[in-house]
């Protein structure tokens, strides 16, 4: 039993880290542009497909991940430049609907480019197999995914909290008008922020590829989960989503031991519980 529980715990942390990457990106975009990025799921799927193409062309997996980040970031920039920005003059609803439209376009392009059949990819030789820790066995890729995601999140955190660029970004999130008045190019900031958020979604997709493969529907499913994570973490806090992501992943994996069918339902139940008893989210302020 301990064996099973700890194995699922490790699994849950890895999946949770991927949720955290997703929701962290969503959180940055939400903070800067003040919109829920409905195309975030599509960018996640895009990352998985790009990573698949890169590794099947013979590139190492690390470059595949980089390509997933870069490709999704580029798509995020295009989204900001050609869809969100032109629609911003027409109001809030127009921006949201545009993002929905963009999500449709991206998902259909994936189907055109890579076909309707789901793709799967096993991790590179170095990351295959498992490490025996005595009380449990940890697949190497699961360990890698967790550590790598943690490193990415920490470096983004350093970028936001410890650099001048990060200071601009935080200023842009908290007081966009004042920031603009200080002569900082907020539009550029929005573009870069969108690229970062989208890139993180793509990276999450690339990381998830060896675990769940690449399918055209993966984006919509993930978007629902990412929204739930954001609600549980609390919309007001940039980092709440990271903790909530890991938490959701772990809870989901542990539930899968007792009742596999209920593992998706449980996170929605958790969301309803949060709404009832702590509507500002676990880490949000009122």
């Amino acid at each position: 039993m301990l064996w099973l529980v700890s194995a699922q715990l490790v699994n849950g942390i890895a999946i949770g880290m991927i949720y955290a990457l997703m929701s962290f990106g969503l959180s940055i975009i939400k903070g800067l542009l003040n919109i829920p990025n409905f195309a975030h799921g599509a960018l996640y799927a895009l990352g998985a497909y790009i990573c698949y193409s890169a590794v099947s062309m013979g590139l190492p997996f690390a470059l595949g991940l980089l390509a997933a980040f870069a490709g999704a970031a580029l798509a995020g920039w295009a989204l900001q430049r050609f869809a969100i920005q032109p629609a911003s003059k027409s109001g809030y609803l127009a921006q949201l609907v545009t993002l929905f439209g963009a999500a449709l376009v991206i998902e259909q392009m994936l189907l055109i480019g890579w076909g309707t059949i789901g793709l799967s990819y096993s991790p590179p030789p170095l990351l295959r197999g498992a490490v025996n820790l005595g009380f449990t066995v940890v697949p190497k890729y699961i360990a890698f995914a967790s550590v790598f995601s943690a490193l990415v999140i920490v470096s983004v955190w350093l970028l936001i909290e410890r650099t001048k660029f990060g200071a601009y970004l935080r200023a842009g999130i908290e007081r966009p008008d004042t920031t603009r008045a200080l002569g900082i190019n907020v539009d550029l900031l929005l573009g870069v922020g969108m690229m970062m958020g989208a890139g993180l979604a793509g990276l999450a997709g690339g990381l998830a590829l060896p675990l769940v493969g690449a399918t055209s529907t993966m984006g919509g499913d993930m978007l629902g989960i990412a929204f739930v994570v954001l609600v549980i973490g609390g919309l007001g806090s940039l980092y709440g989503s990271v903790a909530a992501g890991v938490l959701v992943g772990v809870v989901q994996s542990l539930t899968a031991i007792a009742a596999p069918a209920a593992s998706t339902a449980i996170i929605y139940a958790a969301m309803i519980g949060i709404l009832l008893f702590r509507p500002q989210g676990l880490f949000g302020e009122r």
Binding site: A83, P86, T98, F100, A103, V105, L111
Partner: peptide, 19 residues
């Protein structure tokens, strides 16, 4: 792949005909 065309149509409408 008709949803692609539908998505593009929506983006274009939102850009040029927001009302």
């Amino acid at each position: 792949r008709w949803p692609l065309l539908l998505g593009l149509f929506v983006i274009i409408i939102m850009t040029y005909l927001p009302q």
